[in-house]
C-alpha cells in the first residue's frame, strides 16, 4: 500500500546511522581484543589470544577484579537487605510522606557521582573508615540501593493485593504472607534489581576513584590508570571479557527468572 516514501526512507537512514553509531565503538574494541599486534592497527594483522593471556598475567588487573567482585557482591547484598523491606513498606502507599521517602531513596541516582565520591571519602575518613573495603562497600551501597528499590517497588505495585488478602483471610500471619506469598512472587524482581545493582557497582569509576589504594583499587580504577599510561589492546581484552560476563549473567538471569517479561512489560506493541 505504501509507496516509496521519502520521509520514511530518511527516518530509516537516521535509524541505521544510530545503530552504527551505538555499536561501532563497542564492536571495534571486541575485534581489537583478538589482535596479534602489539599496538592498535587495523586491519588486524592476525588473530591471537595473547591479550587475554596478558590480562591474566598482569597482577593489578586480578587484584582489582577481586576488589570489584567483593565490593559489588557486598554492596548488592546490603542494598537488598535494606531496599526490599523499604520497597514493600512504601510501594503501595499514596501518602505524601511515602512519596517523599521514595523520592529520597531514589535520589542518589540523580547526584553527580564525582561529588559523592569526594564527599564520601572525607566523611568516611573522619569516622575512621578511610581507604578501606568497608568504606567502599558503604559508598557503593548508597548508589546501588535505588536500583533495587526501583525494580522491587514497581513489581510489588503490580502484584494484586487480593493474593495477600486471601492468605490473611485463611489465617496466615503477616510474616507467613511475606514469606510464602509476597517474597516468592517478587523473586524475579529482586534478582533483576540485584543484577542491575551488581553491574552498576562493578562499573562504577567516579566513586571508587577516590578510594584509591593498593588494597582498594577496583578494576575500573586500575583500567583507568592503565589507559592513562599506555594505549595497547590489553584494555580491549579485559573490556571484552567483562562484556561477555555481563551478557552471560543477563542470559542466565533471563533463563532462570524470566527477566524478559520484567523488562518487556513497558514494551507494549
Amino acid at each position: 500500500m505504501r509507496r516509496a516514501d521519502p520521509a520514511l526512507w530518511l527516518l530509516r537512514a537516521v535509524v541505521a546511522l544510530f545503530i552504527l553509531f551505538m555499536l561501532a565503538p563497542i564492536l571495534v574494541v571486541v575485534a581489537l581484543s583478538f589482535t596479534s599486534a602489539g599496538y592498535v592497527v587495523f586491519p588486524l594483522p592476525g588473530l591471537s589470544l595473547r591479550w587475554f593471556a596478558r590480562m591474566l598475567d598482569y597482577a593489578p588487573f586480578l587484584q582489582g577484579l577481586r576488589v570489584s567482585l567483593q565490593v559489588a557482591l557486598g554492596a548488592t547484598l546490603l542494598s537488598v537487605l535494606l531496599g526490599v523491606p523499604a520497597s514493600l513498606a512504601l510501594a503501595r502507599s499514596h501518602h505524601p510522606a511515602a512519596l517523599a521517602a521514595m523520592t529520597f531513596l531514589l535520589s542518589p541516582l540523580s547526584m553527580p557521582m564525582i561529588v559523592f565520591g569526594f564527599a564520601a571519602l572525607f566523611f568516611l575518613s573522619r569516622i575512621g573508615l578511610g581507604l578501606s573495603l568497608p568504606a567502599l562497600l558503604v559508598a557503593h551501597g548508597c548508589v546501588c540501593l535505588p536500583y533495587v528499590v526501583r525494580v522491587t517497588a514497581a513489581a510489588y505495585r503490580g502484584l494484586p493485593p487480593a493474593l495477600e488478602e486471601a492468605a490473611e483471610v485463611l489465617g496466615a500471619s503477616r510474616a507467613a504472607v511475606l514469606r510464602h506469598v509476597v517474597l516468592p512472587l517478587l523473586r524475579p524482581a529482586i534478582a533483576a534489581g540485584s543484577l542491575f545493582s551488581f553491574l552498576v557497582s562493578f562499573d562504577n569509576l567516579p566513586l571508587s576513584f577516590f578510594f584509591g589504594s593498593p588494597g582498594t583499587n577496583t578494576l575500573p580504577v586500575v583500567m583507568l590508570s592503565y589507559v592513562e599510561q599506555q594505549f595497547d589492546p590489553a584494555i580491549a581484552a579485559i573490556s571484552t571479557a567483562q562484556l561477555a560476563v555481563a551478557v552471560l549473567l543477563l542470559v542466565l538471569a533471563d533463563r532462570f527468572y524470566g527477566l524478559g517479561r520484567l523488562v518487556g512489560q513497558e514494551g507494549g506493541g
Binding site: 561501532a24 581489537l32 553491574l199 583507568l224 594505549f231 580491549a236 573490556s239 571484552t240 562484556l243 555481563a246
Partner: peptide, 18 residues
Amino acid sequence: VAPLLTSIIMRTFGWQVL
C-alpha cells in the same frame, strides 16, 4: 541496552580506537 552492559572505559576506549 547493549551499551549499558559495557564499561564506561570500554566505550571511551572504543572512540580512541575508532
